[in-house]
Design a protein around this nucleic acid. Structure first.
Length: 935
RNA sequence: GGGCUCAUAGCUCAGUUGGCAGAGCGCACCCCUGAUAAGGGUGAGGUCGCAGGUUCAAGUCCUGCUGGGCCCA
């Protein structure tokens, strides 16, 4: 026994065992940053710009994350997907310049800075606040940029776009000038969601809805005709001072009921709920008959009237709706139709102004609620008051409740027709048109979603009353002079030029005549008279800033066009692709689409690709306060970027994405499987010089397992490149994993191990297999490169033996030549039959007690649907992991032979029937003896 | 409350035009020890969220419901 062992050791040394510098342990945490540095040093991004691009330009535009705090998982997903696009398109032959960007202005940063400043903020000028905000934004950009680079994303990090940069700001104003030119920008009084806390109008996107307890009141409005009263219901008693009308639905039935000896009008369907079960109407009328009735305001000397409105429902209240045009969008629209004032007695700070009754002046609306209720109770107008919980809008940052309040704002009219680029239509119509056709949505339902949102969207309120943003470059007449604000295409473009030179900070400390140094009112046909006649030094610069969405929504111009990265001017869109979370249908997608249609008459994107949101492993919303959010930095530290990227690439991103640290562990195991397969490929190329040692295509054997393998890798290449082309990263991921796990590891590599180890190093068969392994490696490593850039590059350098090599400079491997290698058609059937053979072997091993498959021989009568006469039986034996494979037409079914009585080759461990004692005294097969030069 | 959307094995997901439920992971058992903090083989697992309907036939089409997600009110 001990002799045998010694012999075995001797023979082991004679084997060509795998050897490689590509380690099993990835050590991504240390090695990935090193890769990143290496790419930076070699100028990878720049080099990619300079090389040939046979496929032309692919215009892909990064949507700017908000420059606030650390990246979260949503960013990781988004940035990884974007990087897959950049890298797959690059390797497909496109030039994909990619400028990362950040949204820097806006309330979240300003709010944070104001919180940090505390009371000090009150004494500070806007410009001082802005400087603090800028510092904060810069800090966030730096942090996030570092994290994005740690994710190994390929982008122009040396020159990103920041929405607060002067050249960006100038380009936003250029877009705005175009909209002013189209005459769709107007100033109007309109109720908007108003944050008392931040004293600004809020966009829909800046609201969050929470349940809130309010006092709801049933109030009797006395009819002017003395026939009793109308009962209204409201959850916002503080808006009653602004009540100008009561709305009813024309088709509903309203009844007159006796309450405490007096008559009140309530919708019939709601009467029992409001007045009690025994309520019986004395008289029933249709709503339409009430229209025009007048009533006395309960505590203000004013007469209101009954109007009709479709939005009146019978779900809550009384069917008679308190209407205050200054405090609600629907009320406002009703007011417009009925010619009511947009009356709003509430000031910026949420207190009542001097037009309100004396007892409310200077009081906050929240306190006003109680005062109004007390007043109504005292005067006998209050029928009932109760606590009521309802969903109520809150400021998304401060979480404080907002109110509806009429204010002067700048708007973009989405319903006004204009001409541009030879077409005519409103912004809404144009947006609906390109959504219906022209823009591709992935997944397709994005189209419906976008359409639904466009159908219902109101005019875009552009203005905010804050410090941290891009000023709306409007000028107002000097005190004492009446007139429209100065805001013309020329005046806006003049300020745009100034902002490019000095930045928008200039607005806050520069005299108006200097702000307008590039502008000549006299020569501007659109300028109001006061501006032509007056001195610019006297003009009053406006205090409004833009909705941040207008800034990010102009990025197609401020980045892609301004930097010369857009598609040609005559192309039907500015870029090829935008890729963001599905929430951006309402956000960035739509708010980029509208300005671009206004400015150029065409959409900013040809395709919109969206992904879903992260949820926890039970499918619930992720939230920081629940502590179920994973830290991106921790993930990099625990798993590495390539593992995180591999995880992303395996997701179905159309819908919700479940996330849990466990999934990263699983992704890590898959990664290791892929890595080990690469390692085994590389380790069997030790000493193999492709140029010298390769088997030429024309020498390939169509019936060899190598022919099958070569065909398989060309199929993989086709599958994966097609998947990449359609952004089906998951499909590519799956195909590559299965290829590594099954095609390579379980089938091919297991089968060819014997010849790689035991054949003479220079044997034609071994060289043919190494040639195949080399070809597989070049295809596979390149296909993996977009998903795991570090690992692929590491493998590529190991494959080429060139420390300077970089896989990311290469295109995907052209497999055209490999497809020319003929393959025996029988291989498909052989692989199918193999499953059955393995089952038979397993069965025989159980029955006959054979542990090692190499102690088996397989005999089959035929291979179903295949002519294997030209096949090498050794290939088939190796495919089954057995020592021998034979065709025996006399059999009825596959037969497994127990070979344990036959001698075993001490070198290859096979019992192939040729084993005998050789000149060195060892028991060897013919092949092994030959490999050792023995007889 | 409305728009869009999702629900298939323990987990992650495939399932074209309706036609016998699939893959990978995990798990169990076994092998190998010359890919070794590796590798190979076999196997068990599902009332396709629930309830109706259309059809010879429904995971797939229709309606309703339940429970998630995004957006809006």
């Amino acid at each position: 026994m001990s002799d045998q062992k010694t012999d075995a050791k001797t023979y082991k040394k004679s084997l060509n065992l795998p050897k490689t510098a590509f380690p099993m342990k990835a050590n991504l945490v240390q090695n990935e940053p090193a890769s990143q540095k290496r790419w930076d040093k070699m100028g990878l991004y720049q080099k990619l710009r300079e090389k040939d691009h046979p496929a032309g330009r692919y215009a892909f535009h990064d949507g700017p994350p908000y420059a606030n705090a650390s990246l979260h998982l949503g960013h990781l997903l988004n940035k990884a997907l974007k990087d897959f696009v950049v890298r797959t398109k690059t390797m497909a032959g496109y030039d994909v310049p990619y400028v990362p960007g950040w949204d820097c202005h806006g309330l979240p940063i300003e709010h944070k800075v104001m919180q940090e400043l505390g009371d000090k903020a009150k004494q500070m000028e806007p410009i001082q606040v802005r400087r603090k905000c800028k510092t904060y934004a810069e800090k966030s950009v730096k942090l996030q940029s570092g994290q994005m680079q740690r994710l190994l994303t390929l982008a122009d990090y040396k020159d990103p776009y920041l929405t607060m940069n002067p050249r960006y700001e100038g380009a936003v104003l250029d877009v705005f000038a175009d909209l002013v030119d189209r005459d769709v920008v107007y100033r109007g009084l309109k109720p908007v969601h108003w944050s008392i806390e931040n004293q600004t109008a809020l966009a829909e996107a800046e609201l969050e809805y929470y349940d809130r307890e309010d006092t709801s009141v049933f109030v009797k409005f006395d009819r002017v005709d003395g026939q009793g009263s109308l009962m209204i219901w409201t959850t916002t008693p503080w808006t009653l001072p602004a009540n100008l009308a009561v709305a009813v639905h024309e088709r509903y039935e309203y009844g007159e009921y006796e309450v405490d000896g007096k008559t009140v009008v309530v919708a019939v369907e709601l009467a029992k709920k409001v007045l009690g079960e025994e309520a019986e109407p004395k008289k029933i009328v249709k709503g339409v008959e009430l229209v025009g009735l007048e009533y006395k305001h309960p505590f203000i000397d004013r007469v209101g009237k009954v109007v009709s409105a479709d939005y009146v429902t019978l779900e809550d209240g009384t069917g008679l709706v308190h209407t205050a045009p200054g405090h609600g969008v629907e009320d406002y629209q009703t007011g417009l139709r009925e010619g009511l004032d947009v009356y709003c007695p509430v000031k910026d700070d949420g207190t009542f102004d001097d037009t309100a009754p004396e007892w409310l002046r200077g009081v906050s609306v929240w306190k006003g609620n109680d005062l109004v209720v007390d007043r109504l109770r005292a005067s006998g107008h209050l029928f009932h008051a109760e606590q009521f919980s309802h969903s109520y809008p809150h400021d998304w940052r401060g979480k404080s409740p907002v109110i509806f309040r009429a204010t002067e704002q700048w708007f973009v009219d989405v319903n006004k027709s204009f001409d541009v680029a030879g077409t005519s239509g409103t912004m809404r119509e144009r947006a609906l048109d390109v959504t219906a056709e022209g823009v591709g949505f992935i997944p397709q339902w994005g189209k419906n979603r976008m359409r639904g949102m466009l159908d219902s969207r109101p005019d875009w309120c552009l203005s905010r009353q804050r410090a941290w943003g891009l000023p709306i470059p409007a000028f107002y007449p000097p005190k004492g002079i009446e007139g429209e604000p100065l805001l013309t295409p020329a005046s806006v473009r003049a300020v745009a030029q100034l902002f490019r030179e000095k930045g928008s900070d200039a607005w806050f400390f520069t005299a108006p005549d200097e702000l307008l140094v590039h502008y000549d009112a006299v020569g501007d046909p659109d300028a109001p008279d006061w501006a032509k006649q007056g001195s610019p030094a006297e003009f009053v610069a406006g205090a409004d800033i833009f909705d941040v969405w207008f800034e990010s929504g102009s990025s197609w111009n401020a980045v892609m066009r301004q930097r010369g990265l857009a598609k040609p001017d005559d192309a039907p869109s500015v870029t090829d692709l935008y890729l963001e979370g599905s929430d951006q249908h309402r956000g960035w997608f739509q708010l980029s689409l509208l300005p671009c249609l206004g400015s150029l008459g065409k959409p900013p994107f040809a395709n919109v690709l969206t992904h879903g949101f992260m949820v926890d492993k039970d499918g619930r919303k992720m939230s920081k306060s629940d502590g179920n959010a994973l830290s991106v930095d921790e993930l990099f530290k625990d798993y590495g970027a390539d593992v995180c990227r591999w995880w992303v690439s395996g997701l179905n991103t159309d819908n919700d994405i479940k996330v849990d640290s466990e999934y990263f562990r699983l992704a890590g195991e898959e990664y290791r499987k892929v890595r080990n397969t690469l390692r085994f490929l590389l380790s069997n190329l030790d000493g193999f010089d492709f140029k010298q040692d390769k088997t030429r295509f024309e020498d390939a054997d169509a019936s060899s397992i190598d022919a099958w393998m070569t065909r398989a890798v060309t199929k993989l290449s086709d599958t994966v490149t097609a998947a990449y082309e359609g952004f089906h990263f998951r499909k590519a991921h799956e195909a590559m994993f299965n290829f590594c796990n099954d095609t390579l590891s379980a089938v091919y590599l297991t089968a060819v191990k014997d010849r790689l180890y035991c054949d003479n190093p220079d044997s034609a068969r071994r060289r043919r297999t190494q040639t195949t392994i080399y070809r597989v490696s070049t295809v596979l490593i390149r296909l993996l490169a977009p998903l795991m850039p570090h690992t692929a590059d590491e493998a590529w350098r190991a494959l080429t033996g060139d420390k300077e090599a970089c896989v990311h400079l290469l295109p995907f491997q052209d497999v055209g030549c490999m497809k020319q290698i003929p393959m025996n058609d029988g291989w498909g059937a052989v692989m199918t039959a193999r499953d059955g053979w393995l089952k038979s072997i397993e069965e025989a091993r159980q029955v006959k007690g054979i542990d090692n498959p190499l102690d088996c021989g397989v005999s089959v009568p035929q291979v179903k649907d295949a002519d294997v006469s030209a096949f090498d039986m050794t290939d088939l034996a190796d495919l089954c992991g057995v020592s021998r494979f034979a065709l025996d037409a006399s059999l009825d079914a596959p037969d497994i032979d127990d070979l344990r009585d036959e001698p075993r080759c001490e070198r290859s461990w096979k019992r192939d029937g040729t084993v005998k004692t050789r000149s060195d005294g060892g028991m060897l097969s013919d092949r092994d003896a030959q490999a050792l030069g023995l007889t």
